[in-house]
Design a protein around this nucleic acid. Sequence first.
DNA 1: GTTTGTGAAGGATTTCACAGCA
DNA 2: TGCTGTGAAATCCTTCACAAAC
Lengths: 220, 220
Amino acid sequence: MTTNPQGGPFDPQPDDLGAPEVVVQRLPLYVRMLSQFEQQSVEVVSSEQLGQQLQMTPAQIRKDLSYFGRFGKQGRGYNVRRLSAELRRILGLDTSWNAAIIGMGRLGRAVAAYPGFARERFRIVAAFDADPAVIGARVGDLPVRPMEELAGAVQSLDIKIGIVTVPAQQAQVVIDMLVAAGVRAVLNYAPYSPQVPEDVKVRAIDPVLALQSMTYYLKG
Amino acid sequence: MTTNPQGGPFDPQPDDLGAPEVVVQRLPLYVRMLSQFEQQSVEVVSSEQLGQQLQMTPAQIRKDLSYFGRFGKQGRGYNVRRLSAELRRILGLDTSWNAAIIGMGRLGRAVAAYPGFARERFRIVAAFDADPAVIGARVGDLPVRPMEELAGAVQSLDIKIGIVTVPAQQAQVVIDMLVAAGVRAVLNYAPYSPQVPEDVKVRAIDPVLALQSMTYYLKG
DNA sequence: GTTTGTGAAGGATTTCACAGCA
DNA sequence: TGCTGTGAAATCCTTCACAAAC
């Protein structure tokens, strides 16, 4: 459905916009692995070593990286620091990103409290809920705001990401509001497949779907 | 890396074990969508309608289903009830599955409290942690057990799934213990790519990775 | 008329294999 | 010698398009 032409030889100048989406989705994995090597004070890694750790072929790693530039040295491998920095820049992880979280029930509060976002420079700068009983309460150090304030907050707080933690029944309306407000990236915790325009990216977090696709193999 | 031959024409009798993994991963999505139609008392759906809701092509849905059997009627579509039941059976969702959760910190307690698992017949029947300060405490109605009891509990409680909510540093050892105990399906919340034998399935839940692969497109 | 199920075609992704460089 | 970067080959996955069924 999403058109993702492989694209021929590319302009190395701007980080290749024709890179397949699967490849882009693997880059954060590389970044994470490189951080780990960095922590262990490893200075240089080969695609072989990366592949071993990540359980993928060295060829795939090299091919993936080649969409964006030439980061290695023949006979040696990749400088961990440099490759990490390059990939972060390519992914846009050299800045921080503001996010809003919508749905301040049990799940929303747990997600809002997760320290992993801030650690990677994703900042939750606003919290919303439709329930008057919750509005005004504090979650961490954020006040829970009414949905009416969403569009305004997206503008004034430079919110680029919506984190949706409402029940499935409300997910579509909430995502529609986010999209209408100009948000083009949604992290969707609701067990629901929303319909969005094709320039909006949605990533689903659904542990139940993950489990349900493993039982097939357990059954055997 | 994982060998997944497409397989030629198949034996319709046993639910095709040669179905590509991507296809298996989409089946739960269909199941969820069908439940939604069922709730709205829809009796029959076409691949067109399913595709519209899920934002995928009707052809893909038909092809996916065709790996497992012939569930539709030409000119009419699919009986919602029947297709839902068939897919659940194929995925092994006609029984309940027991899981253990390892790591009873903030994240582990939040995951254990999530009602979505039980709703889909995944039962968390044991909780573990390495920290003596936590062992013995109750989480929901489960006592937190020491890691030494893991292998025994997997056997005696028929645990087929491990849910890993420990910090990244401990993820590999914990997963090794699960695998050694005979667990072949792991839901991994730790921001770490574990190494497992190829007959063990791992699904990662990592909201940070999900966000990091969207910023690439926001940057543009 | 409508919609499935499916070979065949078309695309996309992965892997191979090796020239070229350190 | 060791490892990258990359065309070409192989594989895998999706879409097309239509005969068959209702």
